[in-house]
Write a protein that binds this DNA or RNA. Structure first.
Length: 430
RNA sequence: GGAGAGAUGGCCGAGUGGUCGAUGGCGGUGGUCUUGAAAACCACUGUGCCCGGAAGGGUACCGGGGGUUCGAAUCCCUCUCUCUCCGCCA
């Protein structure tokens, strides 16, 4: 959520920001202006009446103390009470509409974010590694995996439907190796604290990160008398780790990492990436989340992005990093870098991580503050998140980039100690 | 699932229906003292919203919501959460 004071005082900036994001400001800006004016008018009325009421009550107390009779004041005060109640009901309605509207407004992009309409306007900021040249036609992972007996889509479909997969043997082990490798890297070398959070969260947690109320259709909700959802990313539980807390500013930044499965309904993406592991209802991810002071958050975003890139460097996978334009950013983000890994079968770079600074947007929704020097006035923290990395997509990248002509796949050196020393994944002997 | 206890300021912990934003302690900040530090002592130390250029004024907040009352942290109802014991259970 944006700062209500900012919204009121800078409606023009909000209007521009919404337009840059490609959404129509009209249904937002005018109602906000109107609700704010009406709200302030009601507050002044109500508080004036309350002031009178308090004065009258104090007078009664004084009279009783002096042994005088004050019952003649009761009627007037009672009438005032009725009027207050009536006005407060109106005010409550206004406040509710205003809050609901504010919850649907996306974050304002940072000044360094390029204005653009779509992914075509994103800006590549750096590239690492050379895509390998093949002396044969590189196969897509959905051919490689099943041929190696480590990936099975058909059996998954029978028990769960489309957009699910089964990993078997060295495929399952490779996924586990990737998770361990990533967690070790981030905890031992990058200073993150490992967390295993709940995989089911309540609606408040999802409102905190900005997944609700606008994006319920992307989530899996648990049936029955439970107000619980499967997490779409560990960003949700990690960010909510400090929900409602006031952190000691001297402890910031706090850095957390977690491996979790992630669950997304992928509603509305019917035609996209229907084959393979790219877009699944369930996938594994190692997530990075930081809580920082406002002055550090952009430096920490660069560091977080570098931490995610390091995974690909160690795995010797070619990638590029892209700064998303205003029209391609997520709802909560003020600035986002996507990291894209090279996929030979698609002859292109595909998103494998998304690293964002949400500034105080989530902190305000989730009530996460800090005291700058352990004392003084509490202020909202800035929260950042990024994939470090998406495990399924990393597994795809390993299979495709390390494939050999005979269909076997070389295990990247960085992973071998996590794979019991296996150097090559071979097709099953026939 | 059954029984009980609780929720107060950054933290701990008092609280009589009537100047209670709320005693006290801890913590924090500033000061006195000291070569320095500690100790001791003194002072200060919540937040949101509204009006105002500011100074300042007003209002609200004692888990959430509702009620009783001229007036509620205090009485009543309700919800949520936490804890303890019993049962069940990976």
């Amino acid at each position: 959520m944006l700062d209500p004071a900012f919204v009121r005082d800078h409606l023009d900036r909000l209007e521009a920001a919404l337009a840059h994001r490609g959404s129509d400001p009209a249904p937002v800006v005018a109602p906000l202006r109107e609700l704010d004016a009406r709200r302030r008018q009601l507050i002044q009325q109500v508080e004036g009446l309350k002031r009178d009421q308090n004065a009258a009550s104090a007078e009664v107390a004084r009279a009783k103390k002096d042994g005088r009779d004050a019952s003649h004041m009761f009627d007037e005060n009672k009438a005032r009470g009725q009027q207050i109640k009536q006005l407060e009901a109106q005010l409550d309605e206004i406040e509710t509409s205003r809050a609901a509207l504010l919850m649907t407004i996306p974050n304002v992009p940072h000044a360094s974010v390029p204005v653009g309409a779509s992914a075509a306007d994103n800006v590549e900021v750096r590239r690492h590694g050379e895509p390998r040249t093949f002396d044969f036609e590189p196969k897509p992972h959905w051919d490689l995996g099943p041929a190696l007996g480590i990936l099975d889509f058909e059996r998954a479909t029978r028990m769960s439907g489309s957009r699910f997969a089964v990993l078997l043997r060295d495929g399952a082990r490779l996924a586990r190796a990737l998770i361990d490798f990533m967690l070790d890297l981030h905890t031992r070398e990058h200073g993150y604290t490992e967390v295993e959070p709940p995989f089911l969260v309540n609606a408040d947690a999802l409102r905190g990160t900005g997944n609700l109320p606008k994006f319920e259709q992307d989530l899996f909700k648990i049936a029955g008398e439970w107000d619980l959802y499967l997490i779409p990313t560990a960003e949700v539980p990690l960010t909510n780790l400090h929900r409602g807390e006031i952190l000691d500013g001297r402890q910031l930044p706090l850095r957390y990492t977690a491996y979790t499965p992630c669950f997304r309904s992928e509603a509305g993406s019917y035609g996209a990436d229907v084959r393979g592991l790219i877009r699944q209802h369930q996938f594994d991810k190692v997530e990075l989340v930081k809580f920082t002071t406002p002055d550090q958050s952009y430096a920490e975003l660069e560091a977080l992005t570098a931490n995610a890139e390091e995974v690909l460097k160690r795995l010797e996978l070619p990638y590029r990093t892209v700064l998303l334009c205003t029209g391609d950013m997520g709802f909560a983000s003020a600035k986002t870098y996507d990291i894209e890994v090279w996929l030979p079968s698609q002859n292109t770079y595909r998103e494998i991580s998304s690293c964002s600074n949400t500034e105080a947007f989530q902190a305000r929704r989730a009530g996460i503050r800090h005291r700058p020097h352990g004392t003084g006035k509490a202020d909202f923290v800035h929260t950042l998140n990024g994939s470090g990395l998406a495990v399924g997509r990393t597994l795809i990248a390993v299979l495709e980039n390390y494939q050999q002509k005979d269909g076997s796949v070389i295990v990247p050196e960085a992973l071998r100690s996590y794979m019991r020393g296996i150097e090559v994944i071979h097709p099953p002997r026939t």
